[in-house]
Design a binder for these strands. Structure first.
Lengths: 245, 245, 245, 245
DNA sequence: TATGAATGAGTCTTCATTCAT
DNA sequence: CATGAATGAAGACTCATTCAT
């Protein structure tokens, strides 16, 4: 899709969005757009919460980025904290599910399934603005334990289950060998989480220092992982599963 | 590298700052002194910043956890932000370096080096309180771009270089085959970052839902990665392309 | 009297104010119209102002109770403060006057007149929703000195005058003996004010703790007062001085 | 004590108290007076709450009148509402009790006791700044039902009990005749409540229109009441207690 | 040095008032 | 006329920072 992180965050510069792009046709001020407001506010809030964290984001800033006044924000969300919860809810239930359901019918090698899964995740989740929610949750989990629990139930758990189903498919079909299934699934998870962190954190700060091409990253990590999982002719001497100490 | 460091350090040496740095007879004296009381403050601050983020952590809370009064905190650190910078500095320059230098003299298979590296990283960095600094930096990077840059120069860059050296060692010795070296290094980085995130974020919220045994995790990810890297007799083409059905 | 009234009224005639008062053909027309929708607003406002006070009553709440929207309120009253003034005006000029004029033609003993007066006051004023205006004025007098002055001129003064006329009638007819006429009139006023306070304040909070039967209260206080006023055969010296032991 | 209400409220003019009178000896700003602050704040708050009501009183105004900054107020009281509760608590438990206990040992005629009671009430309660608490409670009762209940339990109930004991003493000693004891006690209460209302409400607005001398008022009402209660030789024909309708 | 009372700029939140529909 | 979405000034409350002790 794009070759560097710079492109991924293109258009998110505050100044560029401060007075909106598409939804301000005319009439200047005092537009009445009851239906559209919550969505615009949630988008603005997502961006800012991801960028600065909950505490460092001012409510007025969210409102300004959504193109409304301070008071309007509180017309739709009773408090900053409720706005935060709505942001999380909105960006979880949305894209994750559809992505999640896409792999049951997959035919083809499990190696290809793994590649397809990661690639699709990037297109449907990672590359979208919603991906920041992961960074947000990780940053704020200790301040909002109930949200963390919610995220665990709605995303982490189903995500882990999906990873396990995929790996198990490979094992069942004699394609993969998995020594420690409970932990192997993180071989899929970790690269995706890492990519998100780069995208929304360090990669967003100094894009020059992180010329990370997401698609190439995804491809290389998928290959590495698949290689590590594939059943092979030569005896895999060293990998005997979990050795304590 | 060191110029960024200098910039961040400038004005942050607690004791020196307060007295204008002019009427001290020797430089060694103040260097020794600054660790006395500030040390406890830095530890408390690290814990709280990691847990709650910069903005949500109150200065008084830091002072209280360090067992001193609010005023004392500002006696050693001119501002909350300087405290933050000091926390980052303190926890980077410390353990990372010594860990970094440990692998040049390693003898044995590169697979073992990888295992040793990750295991040692866990013992020296991951398992310590200082590991939270990574979560902290990732959470706050966009609020403190200069700190992010500093962290990049001091940790990420050297870390990546180390990873590359290790993988290159494997390639040079005919043990590993690496298709895309620039991105393969993240195969080492991602699992470690992921573990830290779990430890300090979601894993700290609901330990029951994340019964993640770090050593087992490290071992399994290392094996998976090594497996993926090892030169093998069968099918040396890692990427089989997308064969449908 | 009427000059203060005029001042308060100025600009408060709801319908007139909005259109600059210039393009209305007849004055009678607007006089009739202003009671139509505003009436419900005034009733709602009276209830809420009495219950919660001026500052704690929200304009929207008044509108909602009157069954109209927030905007409509400001269609009839240019501001919350003008609404307040209108409420006071409305509930003073109304019932008090008619009650006030009822006693000139009274025949019978002055004791009965006192009883009749208090009883009638209860029926015409005290028992009505409008009685709350007294509590309201007392609560808000210092915030609205001009309204307090208006109330003084329109209610307190005429009320005191009435009390005085009644007592004087008793004295003139040889029924009552009054030592200090200027202050004796409060013997009539105080019980009525007290009853209103109970009704709209503490009595409205915990009706169980104040099972105050207004009619019985009125009757008992009237009797007590009349007893205190009646000329008697024995000891006509009311004040026996302070005899210790 | 003083001849008019004007004198009673002398010295309460905001401008006069804004920077305190007695407790600012020197040193200009940033005085450290931890012990004295709460009291000063409570006094300022009492005055303002009585004058303007809870909602219309700004926290900063209270602080300013107490001679401190906004923040200092919240150093001693966690919220405006807690300040309010503290004001009520402070001014109830204080003077009322000592006054309440003063009459058990009284020797002399019950008529004198009544006079003594009312006069003492004025000196100990009515004439003090604390008397405003009654006006405050009555104004705010519906907004703070729990405070109203508290006031009822702490003041109204004991007050009524005291009134009853006094009247009963008169009856027992053959001095008074009371037709309806339950309601007769308000013959004592009502004048005092009325006086407070005048003092803090209308009387404070337009002192010229209310040249009410409290002591003369107290004396006249006491005489009137006592007269109404005294057993007399001539048949008290009309006062047969409570006649409904 | 160390303390913690005091400060006041900065935020969240409310609500009277406006105005496009 | 009526509506209710939008506004923004105002007020409660927080907390980094100062400073008298």
């Amino acid at each position: 899709m794009s070759s560097t992180f710079t492109k991924l965050i293109r258009g998110s510069t505050p100044a560029a969005e401060l007075h909106g792009g598409a939804h301000h046709d005319a009439t200047g001020k005092r537009e009445r757009r009851k239906e559209a407001r919550p969505g615009e506010l949630l988008e603005a809030a997502l961006d800012l919460f991801v960028e600065k964290g909950f505490a460092a984001t001012r409510a007025e800033e969210v409102a300004a980025r959504a193109g409304v006044s301070k008071g309007t924000l509180f017309l739709y969300f009773p408090s900053k904290e409720e706005l935060f919860k709505a942001v999380v809810r909105e960006n979880i239930s949305g894209r994750f599910r559809e992505w999640n359901d896409e792999f049951t019918a997959f035919e083809g090698s499990t190696a290809d399934l793994v590649r397809f899964c990661m690639k699709t995740w990037w297109d449907r989740v990672g590359a979208t603005r919603a991906s920041g929610i992961t960074k947000l949750i990780i940053s704020e989990a200790r301040n909002f334990p109930d949200i963390a629990a919610f995220y665990h139930d709605e995303v982490i758990k189903p995500g882990n289950d999906l990873m396990r189903r995929i790996l198990q498919r490979g094992v069942d079909r004699g394609e993969f060998q998995v020594a420690d299934m409970d932990y192997a699934i993180f071989g899929l998870t970790a690269p995706m989480v890492f990519l998100i962190m780069m995208k929304h954190s360090l990669g967003a700060c100094a894009p020059k220092d992180f010329p990370l091409d997401p698609e190439r990253y995804i491809a290389s990590q998928a290959d590495l992982l698949i290689n590590g999982l594939l059943v092979r002719a030569d005896t895999p001497k060293k990998s005997t599963g979990s050795r304590k100490s």
